[in-house]
């Protein structure tokens, strides 16, 4: 059965995995425009923002092999928010979906990112000390 929301997807960014399998698992068919992305493109904000801005006003999906192991998801969401995308989501080959929501971004994901930053600072500092001594 075809999912209407999936059928309306116009742009698909492929981080990893198969867009065909992801779309099939999500319940749609792949007739959108495909863009290949490297996971570490996340370290090139200017390039990523330019791409995402060019997709404004369209329905976008980012395909990943397995959403549970997709790193930098909050960073991607921040880029999407800055670029002005509002209708977009992550999908994976198992049919999982993580839809972008402003509320979720500000209420859950950004506070968790701040916490992650703090834990990371402490962890890297302790790791550094242990490495040296």
């Amino acid at each position: 059965m075809t999912n209407d929301r999936a059928a309306r997807l116009q742009q698909v960014l492929v981080l990893s995995g198969s867009p065909e399998r992801a779309m099939a698992a999500f319940g749609g068919t792949l007739d959108a425009q495909l863009h290949a992305l490297e996971e570490f493109a996340v370290a090139k904000p200017a390039k990523v923002l330019a791409l995402l801005r060019s997709l404004r006003g369209t329905n976008v999906a980012i395909v990943t092999k397995d959403l549970r192991y997709q790193r930098f998801r909050t960073i991607w969401k921040l880029y999407g928010a800055i670029a002005g995308l509002s209708h977009w989501m992550f999908i994976d080959e198992q049919g999982r979906c993580d839809r972008f929501s402003w509320v979720k971004l500000f209420a859950i994901e950004l506070p968790l990112l701040v916490l992650e930053g703090a834990v990371s600072l402490v962890g890297v500092f302790v790791g550094w000390i242990r490495l040296r001594y």
Binding site: F72, R73, V119, S120
Partner: peptide, 9 residues
């Protein structure tokens, strides 16, 4: 909790 910053994980 360590999925968003490079190398830290």
């Amino acid at each position: 909790l360590t999925m968003n910053l490079p190398e830290v994980l």
